[in-house]
Simulated scan of single mutants.
Amino acid sequence: MKTVTGLFDDYADAREAVSALEDRGVPSDDISIVSNNASARYGTAHDSNAAEGAGTGAGVGAAIGGVGGLLTGLGVMAIPGVGPVVAAGWLAATAAGAAAGAVAGGAAGGIIGAMTESGVPEEHAHVYAEGVRRGGAVVTARVDNALYADAEAILRRGSWVDPVQRRAAYAEQGWTQFDEARDPYTAEEIEKERLRLESMR
């Protein structure tokens, strides 16, 4: 099994990527989505807990366009340093520490530890986590070798964010790596960040 990961600035693009992966034959159990929910558009962290059973809260999934598969299991939770997210799948469960019934944190904990332990290069994991913190969404899938090229192509089409270019954009502001001890972005900060990134294109 290999891991493929894509960062998207918009939840709708990430949702399309999840659906395309499922259509290609990647099992829902091997896909994860984590999307910023700072605006509480999809409810609050008290509404459901995506980490329990790798995704509960089917009502949340239905309300935001999940028609089947992984997307029907979306729930609302909080990830240290990222803040409130809508999420489903194994990455969400691991990031929250629910898979082991523990609290996320420590050198191998949280969203960075969850990604790096699954095979995501650490330098990219920091960009992906920061991308979600700043309003984006990350899709990660564990795939068989035979599906790797197709899965990677699915995640790189459309509005995929190149992690190398995004790291450079973050570095312009003095950013070096994701820090789960920092405050999550507010909805207003996310909107300013989106405008800044759009102006750089």
Rank of each mutant, 00 (worst) to 15 (best):
T3I: 01
T3Q: 05
T5I: 09
T5H: 08
G6A: 04
L7I: 07
F8P: 10
A12N: 06
A12V: 12
A12M: 11
A14Q: 09
E16R: 08
A17D: 09
A20V: 08
L21H: 00
L21N: 00
E22F: 05
D23E: 15
V26T: 02
V26I: 13
P27F: 01
D29S: 15
D30A: 15
I31C: 08
S32H: 03
I33E: 06
I33W: 06
S35F: 10
N36S: 12
A38C: 13
R41D: 05
Y42D: 07
T44V: 11
T44H: 13
A45N: 06
D47N: 13
S48H: 02
A50S: 10
E52C: 10
G53A: 03
A54T: 13
A54Y: 07
G55F: 04
A58K: 15
G61Q: 02
A62H: 14
A62S: 10
A62R: 15
A63F: 10
I64L: 14
G66E: 10
G66Q: 09
G68T: 07
T72K: 12
G75E: 05
V76H: 02
A78T: 07
A78H: 03
I79H: 09
G81R: 06
G81N: 03
V82Q: 00
V82W: 02
G83P: 01
P84L: 09
V85Q: 03
A88Y: 10
G89S: 04
L91F: 04
A95F: 01
A96S: 00
A100I: 13
A100H: 15
A100P: 09
G101M: 08
A102M: 12
A102L: 14
V103N: 14
G106I: 04
A107L: 14
A108F: 12
A108W: 07
A108D: 13
G109I: 02
G109S: 03
G109E: 06
G110Q: 05
I111E: 00
A114C: 01
T116G: 01
T116P: 01
S118M: 08
G119S: 03
G119W: 07
V120A: 07
P121H: 03
E122H: 02
H126K: 05
V127G: 10
Y128M: 10
Y128W: 12
A129S: 05
A129M: 01
R134D: 05
G136H: 00
A137C: 08
A137S: 13
V139L: 01
A141T: 06
V143A: 04
V143E: 05
V143Q: 02
D144L: 07
N145F: 06
N145V: 08
A146E: 15
Y148I: 01
A149W: 09
D150L: 11
E152N: 14
I154S: 07
I154W: 10
I154Y: 10
L155N: 14
L155S: 11
R157K: 09
S159R: 14
S159Y: 09
S159G: 10
V161G: 09
D162G: 06
V164Q: 12
R166C: 06
R167M: 11
R167P: 08
A171H: 09
Q173E: 11
T176L: 12
Q177Y: 13
A181L: 14
R182P: 12
D183F: 01
T186M: 09
A187S: 13
A187G: 04
E189W: 06
E189C: 09
I190E: 02
E191G: 12
K192P: 07
E193A: 05
R194D: 04
L195E: 11
E198G: 07
